[in-house]
Simulated scan of single mutants.
Amino acid sequence: MQLILVRHPQPDVAPGICYGRTDMPTSIDAIAAVAASLRAAGLPGALPVFASPLLRCVQLARALGAPVTLDARLAEMDFGAWEMRPWEAIARAEVDAWAADLLHYRPGGGENVLAVAQRVAAFRDALRRAGHPAALLICHAGTMRVLSALHAGGSIEEAALRAASSPHRIGYGEVLVLKD
């Protein structure tokens, strides 16, 4: 199976804000630019398109003009009470507690990394069972890191730790291709 992962365009949020599961739009110009880039690369073509139900992904998926299946398992991590707060305003002790237990700590009382990895793995497994040889997924940097870590193999716990430990270097609108 080949997965073509696309990160959503930049959302309308100030830099330095924690915004995992928060639903927010992106600018029409940002959507148009990423959609044009994808179309120039021949995407989505005949591929099935799946997207996170968060608006920043839905807007891009719909701009491509192909049928899209929304799936909550592709959503970004829920940071609970940290959502929409500046990262610098989150107590250092809370961030340190998360760093000390990446798998199980629930930042802001939200979701832990292991739970994210489990739901993303459930989506990937369902997609495989459906028999799609390839699919286009419009999602989030966190989801993309988890899918990449799962693709590398090992237990779900190992994949979750790899995803959480990897530096965040996935740009808005970036495409990542995973092939079995």
Rank of each mutant, 00 (worst) to 15 (best):
A51M: 03
A93Y: 00
W82N: 04
R56P: 11
G131I: 03
Y105W: 15
W82S: 04
P133D: 14
W87S: 01
G80A: 07
A117I: 07
R106T: 15
H104S: 13
P67T: 06
R62K: 10
G108S: 05
A35I: 09
H140M: 07
P107W: 02
S37A: 15
L64C: 11
Q118S: 12
E88L: 12
A30R: 03
V34L: 09
P86H: 14
A36I: 05
D101I: 08
D96Y: 00
H132C: 10
A81V: 06
A30N: 12
D71F: 13
F123V: 02
I90L: 04
H104W: 11
L114G: 02
C139K: 00
A100C: 08
M77G: 09
A36W: 05
P44Q: 06
M84E: 11
A115C: 11
Y105T: 11
C139T: 15
L74T: 06
L102W: 04
D125E: 12
V49G: 08
L74Y: 02
L55V: 10
R62F: 04
R56T: 08
V58I: 12
G142N: 03
R73E: 13
D71P: 07
M77F: 13
A122E: 10
M84F: 09
R119T: 09
A130K: 12
A115M: 13
V113H: 14
Y105Q: 13
D101T: 07
A75L: 02
D71H: 07
D96T: 01
A61L: 05
L60K: 01
G109S: 07
S52V: 09
P53G: 10
V68W: 03
A141P: 05
M77C: 13
W98V: 04
V116D: 03
L102R: 15
M144D: 06
L54T: 05
L114V: 05
A61Q: 01
A126R: 00
M77Y: 06
R39P: 04
P107H: 01
A32P: 04
D101H: 04
M144N: 10
W98R: 03
S37M: 12
A117D: 06
A32I: 08
P107K: 02
W87D: 01
E76H: 00
Q59T: 07
T69Y: 07
I31N: 14
C139V: 15
G42K: 02
Q118W: 09
C57W: 04
H132K: 00
L103K: 03
A100N: 07
H104T: 11
A81F: 08
C139M: 12
R85S: 11
A72I: 11
A35D: 08
